[in-house]
Amino acid sequence: MDIRKATSADVEDMQRLIQHFADMGLMLPRTIKSLCEHLQCFTVAVEDGRVIGVGGLHVLWTDLAEIRSLAVSPEAHGKGVGSQIVKALLKEAEDLGIAQVLSLTYQTRFFEKLNFHVVRKETLPHKVWKDCIYCNKFYHCDEVAMVYYTRHFQPLKQAKEA
């Protein structure tokens, strides 16, 4: 299996894989147009010339990026494909100097194993007001917000008492 940046030749397979899970209500759908416009954000897992996994890293702000559209073909589940894609995306975030990587997910155990932590959505205003406000699930979102803190993360320093 090869983990690499997506190319235009991968777009139709990526869209088909994402749509499979979107049809089940597990993720948002992506159009071919959207995938093409954001192609540079996507990483794929390829086996025997076929895309078996996909995930995107979308930069939201100077200190925040989001893992989007993470999907692994059902026959490849349990083989570490999703973990390898996420690790590649986390390395990319580190290389970009991003402090936090967000995932809105139903797969909390998967992300916990990769050192993501549950956070309140309200702590992510750049995501909520940039994307979430336009989502049809905005008022009844049931996804869990999880964040990975890269080596660039610096928690706010507590004010010194006088």
Rank of each mutant, 00 (worst) to 15 (best):
residue 80 G to P: 02
residue 44 V to K: 11
residue 150 T to F: 01
residue 80 G to F: 00
residue 155 P to G: 11
residue 89 L to R: 01
residue 133 I to T: 10
residue 141 C to A: 07
residue 76 A to F: 10
residue 145 A to M: 08
residue 113 K to E: 05
residue 118 V to Q: 13
residue 133 I to V: 15
residue 149 Y to V: 01
residue 104 L to G: 09
residue 157 K to S: 12
residue 96 L to M: 14
residue 154 Q to C: 09
residue 61 W to A: 01
residue 96 L to Q: 15
residue 83 S to E: 03
residue 73 S to P: 02
residue 64 L to P: 00
residue 111 F to G: 03
residue 87 K to N: 10
residue 70 L to N: 00
residue 128 V to G: 04
residue 150 T to N: 06
residue 99 A to V: 03
residue 55 G to E: 05
residue 146 M to A: 11
residue 138 F to M: 12
residue 131 D to K: 10
residue 95 D to C: 09
residue 117 H to C: 05
residue 92 E to C: 09
residue 116 F to K: 02
residue 83 S to T: 06
residue 148 Y to S: 05
residue 62 T to E: 01
residue 129 W to E: 15
residue 43 T to C: 12
residue 145 A to G: 09
residue 110 F to E: 09
residue 82 G to V: 07
residue 138 F to A: 15
residue 62 T to M: 04
residue 46 V to C: 13
residue 94 E to A: 00
residue 49 G to E: 11
residue 113 K to W: 01
residue 77 H to W: 02
residue 45 A to P: 06
residue 71 A to Y: 10
residue 69 S to R: 05
residue 91 K to W: 06
residue 120 R to G: 02
residue 70 L to P: 00
residue 152 H to L: 03
residue 60 L to W: 00
residue 85 I to Q: 04
residue 126 H to T: 00
residue 121 K to T: 04
residue 101 V to D: 04
residue 96 L to E: 13
residue 131 D to F: 15
residue 126 H to F: 01
residue 95 D to W: 03
residue 140 H to N: 13
residue 108 T to C: 07
residue 54 V to L: 07
residue 156 L to P: 00
residue 76 A to S: 15
residue 49 G to I: 04
residue 150 T to C: 08
residue 73 S to D: 15
residue 76 A to H: 12
residue 57 L to T: 03
residue 145 A to L: 07
residue 47 E to I: 06
residue 156 L to V: 10
residue 72 V to L: 08
residue 145 A to V: 08
residue 102 L to N: 03
residue 133 I to L: 11
residue 138 F to T: 10
residue 112 E to Q: 12
residue 71 A to P: 00
residue 140 H to L: 03
residue 122 E to T: 13
residue 128 V to Q: 11
residue 104 L to D: 05
residue 149 Y to K: 15
residue 157 K to T: 12
residue 61 W to K: 04
residue 86 V to W: 12
residue 75 E to L: 03
residue 58 H to L: 11
residue 97 G to M: 07
residue 94 E to N: 04
residue 158 Q to F: 10
residue 147 V to P: 04
residue 91 K to A: 11
residue 142 D to T: 12
residue 44 V to S: 10
residue 125 P to G: 08
residue 52 I to Y: 01
residue 81 V to P: 07
residue 110 F to H: 05
residue 145 A to K: 06
residue 68 R to M: 05
residue 143 E to C: 05
residue 142 D to C: 08
residue 106 Y to G: 04
residue 105 T to D: 14
residue 80 G to H: 00
residue 60 L to T: 00
residue 55 G to H: 13
residue 43 T to F: 14
residue 59 V to L: 01
residue 63 D to V: 04
residue 80 G to C: 04
residue 119 V to I: 13
residue 152 H to N: 13
residue 59 V to S: 01
residue 123 T to L: 12
residue 105 T to M: 13
residue 141 C to Y: 12
residue 54 V to D: 04
residue 43 T to Y: 15
residue 78 G to R: 13
residue 100 Q to W: 00
residue 108 T to M: 06
residue 48 D to S: 14
residue 115 N to M: 06
residue 45 A to K: 11
residue 101 V to N: 02
residue 113 K to N: 07
residue 94 E to T: 06
residue 152 H to K: 12
residue 87 K to Q: 15
residue 105 T to V: 14
residue 63 D to T: 11
residue 129 W to Y: 13
residue 151 R to H: 09
residue 155 P to A: 14
residue 107 Q to L: 14
residue 106 Y to E: 10
residue 147 V to E: 08
residue 139 Y to N: 15
residue 123 T to S: 14
